[in-house]
Amino acid sequence: MIRSAAGLPARAVEPVANLWFTWRYVENNLGDITTALSQHVTLTVQAVVLALVVALPLAVLAHRRPRLAGPVLGASGVLYTVPALALFAMIYPLLWDPRTTVLIGLVMYALLVLVRNVLVGLQGVDRGVVDAARGTGIGPTRLLLTVELPLAIPSIFAGLRLATVSTVALVTIGIIVGYGGLGQLLYRGFNSQYRAEIATATVLTLLVALVADLLLMALGRALTPWARGGR
């Protein structure tokens, strides 16, 4: 056996294959992976929930005042063409906080999708149903809460799913301010040319999107028992 100067056996040099996936990477980096994953999930959930909270009243307003609908959708369309990277880069020098920067950016994009879908859902409610409900003597608030919004649930959930899936993908752009969830692993893996890290982060991002999408689909179905048998 070859001995090195210190008298220890020379380390067997394995040819280092730069594999796209190894369990060893996952085992050795479990802490980092968990941190990145929880950062990713937390950001996504917060962004979508906040966006929904803002989108609902905006869409209701645009629905009640149809003259506002055009400008609201037009402005959101223009904003949607601005890349996330540029948006994050514009917000950061105003706030100097990576987390808030990414969160606000994500909320803005999710908001655009949600306002559009909630509005479409509200506008799609059968006029006959609305008239029948009015005929029973309920006020506009109860009409909204007990008739219009429940009937708009399929469209709202279609929007929620779209917004959530795109938010999961957009979180990775947060690496520009150093707060990109699983994107941080992607970037670190890229910079050290560690393929297993890049691939693991990619697969986890896809899994987060898939799980979120399935959960929302199930929730949407549970909330619309009358629509069983449809989509």
Partner: peptide, 19 residues
């Protein structure tokens, strides 16, 4: 088309650039 939304552009970019 819908599935392609879930894949981060950045991820594919880095995979291609590393392969």
């Amino acid at each position: 088309t819908n599935t392609s939304l879930a894949l981060p552009t950045l991820a594919l970019l880095m995979i291609f650039a590393s392969s």
